[in-house]
């Protein structure tokens, strides 16, 4: 028989359990606690020992309920769980789930490489303010060896880390997962940049908008399959010398890029080719409107002592001789 005091006790006990589970989503809470009162009444009717003595405090009871019901239910709403469970039953899911762990060593290698990529991109951004990656490692450049060594070392570290399979706490495991995801995400921009530069015939194409420093600066690009002739204003190009096809040096050649923007190099930066180690400065001609003309080449560069930097020696490639204009052959005079 259920006495009224017991019922009262059950009602109060159940109310306390409900209160302790107030943070659960409403639907889940309703599903779980649907017949809590009936159940507790049943328990109470079995014995005269007070509920708290048999079941522990309402809070303990709620915690036990939560772990038995909530822990494995997860935070996902039920409809997603149904979909997930159906997905897990498919053969495809099982095949993928079985196969993915085998790819782990491949990910270790890729991860090491991506780390190098990210570091290179970060370094470039810090130095130049933009990213322009060739295929890395690219042994034909000055940094190729460094890139190669860094890549090998990074992959080695990555594999060693992966093989150690540290028995670490869950917090560390999530941190590791997070770090892995971060590397993969951070590698996306450099990867895209690299694939873009591989796809285009030009290694780097500058545009004024990319440069934050004052004034528009423009870069001249070179096709990748030729030796570097002209790069950017940030690299070695400080002046441009133009020649006509028969080797005559041209003065005040105005250069524009494909957008009609004046092509400008950082003249006077660094040491002129014949500057004997002295810093040189560029002088720009002043236009009729009083504005300096920045894209007339070659720039006049002068050292600190006033001596102008002479033009470099150049080898003018032999052009084919102009096709002779057909002229009526002189007919022999009879």
């Amino acid at each position: 028989m259920t006495s009224s005091s017991d019922l009262d006790n059950v009602a109060r006990y159940a109310a306390a359990v409900r209160a302790a589970l107030a943070d659960l989503p409403a639907q889940e809470r309703a599903d779980l606690l649907e017949d809590l009162e009936d159940h507790l009444t049943e328990v109470a009717s079995e014995s005269d020992v007070p509920l708290t003595q048999r079941l522990g405090s309402p809070e303990q009871y709620a915690a036990e309920l939560r772990s038995a019901y909530g822990a494995r239910t997860g935070e996902l709403p039920r409809r997603y769980q149904v979909v997930l469970a159906a997905l897990r039953r498919t053969a495809t899911y099982r095949a993928v789930a079985d196969f993915l762990p085998q790819l782990r060593p491949a990910w270790w290698i890729l991860r090491g490489y991506l780390a190098v990529l990210v570091l290179t991109a970060v370094f470039q951004t810090w130095r130049d303010g933009f990213i322009s990656l060739r295929l890395i490692p690219y042994p034909l450049t000055s940094r190729g060896l460094l890139q190669l060594v860094a890549t090998v070392v990074a992959i080695w570290i990555s594999i060693a880390t992966g093989r150690r399979r540290l028995a670490v706490s869950r917090g560390w495991r999530s941190a590791a997962l997070f770090a892995n995801g971060l590397v993969a995400l951070a590698a996306l921009p450099p990867l895209l940049n690299m694939s873009a530069s591989l796809g285009s015939p030009y290694h780097f194409s500058g545009s004024g908008a990319r440069f934050s420093s004052s004034g528009p600066r423009y870069a001249v690009c070179q096709p990748q399959d030729r030796p570097p002739v002209v790069v950017t204003q940030l690299a070695a190009v400080t002046n441009i010398y133009a020649y006509s096809r028969d080797g005559k040096p041209l003065q005040d050649v105005l250069l524009y890029d494909q957008n009609g923007q004046p092509v400008q190099v950082l003249g006077g930066v660094g040491k002129g080719a014949a500057g004997k180690g002295q810093p040189v400065t560029a002088r720009y001609p002043t236009g009729a409107d009083g504005q300096p003309i920045m894209n007339a080449y070659p720039l006049t560069e002068a050292g600190a002592d006033g001596s102008t930097v002479p033009a470099p020696r150049v080898a003018i490639p032999p052009f084919p001789t102009a096709t002779p204009t057909p002229s009526p052959s002189p007919s022999p005079t009879p």
Partner: peptide, 30 residues
């Protein structure tokens, strides 16, 4: 634990593994 069993029953029921039906009883609860 009583709560563990109750929670497990509810979870298995929500997971679609169980049927349930109410049996009325003269004394005591349904």
């Amino acid at each position: 634990g009583d709560a563990s069993v109750y929670g497990t029953l509810r979870r298995l029921y929500q997971a679609g593994a169980l049927t349930s039906y109410v049996v009325p009883s003269g004394e005591g609860p349904h």
